[in-house]
Simulated scan of single mutants.
Amino acid sequence: MSLPPPGHSLIDDAQGIAFGSFMAAVSVVLLTHLGFVTGQTAGLAILISYATGWAFGPVFFIINLPFYWLGWRRFGPVFVAKSFAAVAILSVLAVILPRYLHFGDTHPAVGALLVGCLTGVGLIALFRHGSSLGGIGIVGLYIQDATGFRAGWVQMIFDAALFLVALTLRDPVTVGWSFLGAVVLNLTIAVNHRKDRYIA
């Protein structure tokens, strides 16, 4: 009888969370450079940033605070601690990186593909180390537990509402390219992150 594979060490988790947060932060810099939008709490923070001129990092950090209580109840303190770390790292990097990372002319199709891939890789790294970027996914799981309404549908409804609001702040073509980025992101996760395959 084979033994179960060893879990991640503390160093493994630290590296994975740092990597995932960094990739997501690079994606945010490119995404905002192109004027794109996205879904989930990151998308909400970006829309608030566009509408108010406030920096994305602090807005994103504050928006996620209410979700930690739900995360604690649903997933426990370890998940919350790791997710808090990931959100904090992303929030700080989103403020610092634009000083050192600049993008020139980028075709929106290429930008959408890069945003989707970068964010997808970053989120996969976070998921595989028991972390997340907080937010609506936790609410979706809570609603699913309480009512049976699927968590995926909760996230889809929220994202659809975000993209509709985005049409009041961005032109339809930009929102369309943003949607392509969201599709690439979700396909990246769906194809490359399966619990029945990943065992580390």
Rank of each mutant, 00 (worst) to 15 (best):
V29E: 04
S178C: 08
A51D: 11
D171N: 14
G181Q: 01
L123K: 04
S131L: 08
V173M: 14
P77N: 11
L113P: 02
A25G: 02
H129N: 14
G39Q: 01
P4L: 10
L34N: 01
K82S: 12
I143K: 07
L97I: 09
G134W: 05
T147F: 04
I124K: 06
V191D: 00
P4Q: 07
V121S: 12
I124W: 06
A42G: 14
R99D: 11
A161F: 12
F163D: 00
N192W: 14
L31E: 05
Y68R: 03
P5I: 09
R73M: 10
I138V: 15
V183L: 14
I199T: 11
G137I: 09
S178P: 08
G152A: 11
A45C: 08
S27V: 03
V26T: 06
V115I: 15
V115N: 05
S9H: 04
G57R: 03
L90C: 10
D196W: 08
G137C: 09
V175H: 12
L123F: 10
P98T: 07
Q144S: 13
A200N: 09
T41G: 01
G39L: 05
F36T: 01
I46C: 00
S178V: 09
F163R: 00
G53D: 03
A88D: 02
L101Y: 05
G181C: 07
L65S: 04
F84M: 13
L3I: 11
A200W: 10
V95D: 14
Y50Q: 11
I96G: 01
V139E: 01
N64G: 01
G120P: 06
G16L: 13
D145G: 11
L169M: 15
L90V: 15
I89K: 10
G148I: 05
D105H: 15
V191G: 01
F103P: 10
L185Q: 00
A86L: 11
I124S: 03
L187H: 03
G71T: 08
D13I: 13
I124F: 05
T38E: 05
F22G: 08
V115A: 07
R197N: 01
L31T: 08
G35T: 03
I138M: 12
R73H: 12
H33C: 08
A109R: 04
K82T: 06
F163T: 00
L133A: 04
G148L: 02
A161W: 02
G35E: 03
L113I: 15
L10V: 15
L70W: 12
G76M: 08
R99H: 12
I199W: 10
P4Y: 04
P58E: 02
V37T: 13
Y142H: 11
A18C: 13
V121L: 15
G176L: 13
V37S: 07
V154F: 12
P108I: 06
A42W: 02
A18D: 02
A51H: 13
M156R: 09
L47Q: 11
R170M: 04
A94P: 10
L30N: 07
L31H: 02
A85Q: 05
F103N: 05
V78K: 13
R74C: 05
N192S: 11
P4C: 03
Q155T: 11
V173G: 04
L185I: 04
G43M: 01
F56G: 04
D105L: 15
D145A: 14
G7R: 07
V80G: 03
L180I: 15
V183C: 09
G39Y: 01
F56V: 03
